[in-house]
Amino acid sequence: MEYQWEWLVVVYLYLGGLGAGLFVFSAIFDFMNQKHFEPLARIAALLAPWPVALGAGLLIFDLGSPMRFWRLFSTVQWTSPMSVGSWLLVAFTMTSGAHMLLWARSNPEMPIGIGGLHLPLPSGVRRVELRRTFTALGAPMGLGVGIYTGVLLGAVPARPFWNTPMVAMLFLFSALSTAAAALLLVSTLRKTTVSSIPERRLLYTADIGIILIEIFLIVPYFLHNALSTASQARSLDLVLGGPFTLAFWIGFVALGLLLPLIVEVLDLVPLIAGRKKASHSPLWAYVSAIPVLAGGLVLRWVFVFAGQVSHFG
């Protein structure tokens, strides 16, 4: 059977999760209310809408009849994860867009694209409060988008490889992990904020936690499938000796989870212990961030393609 969903969908799910994760981090950093995390919160906010919007564009481009995409928004089909997800995506894109614009004013010298844009507000409206309203609105949406990318797959009983709630969880945490990695990468690339120790410590800590959660989600994913229907148990063969084994275990687990985990732990421990000065070499950040970003893509590739091969019955 031919694959129905291919690279465009893989990238779409990836970008959707990434954007959602960025927004969630922006919200977290913002509400931490610490001055030295504000640049991170701002970068995350300024980045968040773009991957989602791009991903949605890819999705439309992938349709058999792209000119009819508007029909998605002429109806709400409550039983269809795609319908609910599409609405969620629109709401999130708009919210995160507004959120971005409100952040943009806060730092006119921000070089990142829209950073210099000035959004005039009516007098009497306080920018920070308005922004935080959008942050509060957008954060649950971001979590929703992150979960949705997995629910889209998980809600299909016909594809046993997908058909467990663990997929949604795995996709959500992978989304957060890639967002943390993206922030690490961007903050490292940007000289002005490069590797401030608290930033790095924060991002490392977050990422280590998320990676550990991911690892502990993989275990129940396998258990759940192995102990569920025969088709689900059989579907695991795809990554246990089947054609997706290498991609899953080497591409995702080893390179996307374990390698960055080790790098981050090795880099973080001295930072926490304060035994040495923070290294200003960006190498460590790259070595952990890039594999995480790549691993997230591999995870989605494996799931999107392997799921379509798995058959019910």
Binding site: M67, R71, S74, T75
Partner: peptide
């Protein structure tokens, strides 16, 4: 049909 599509509900 395509031309008039946006004006018709499904």
């Amino acid at each position: 049909a395509l031309a008039s599509a946006p004006f018709t509900s499904h």
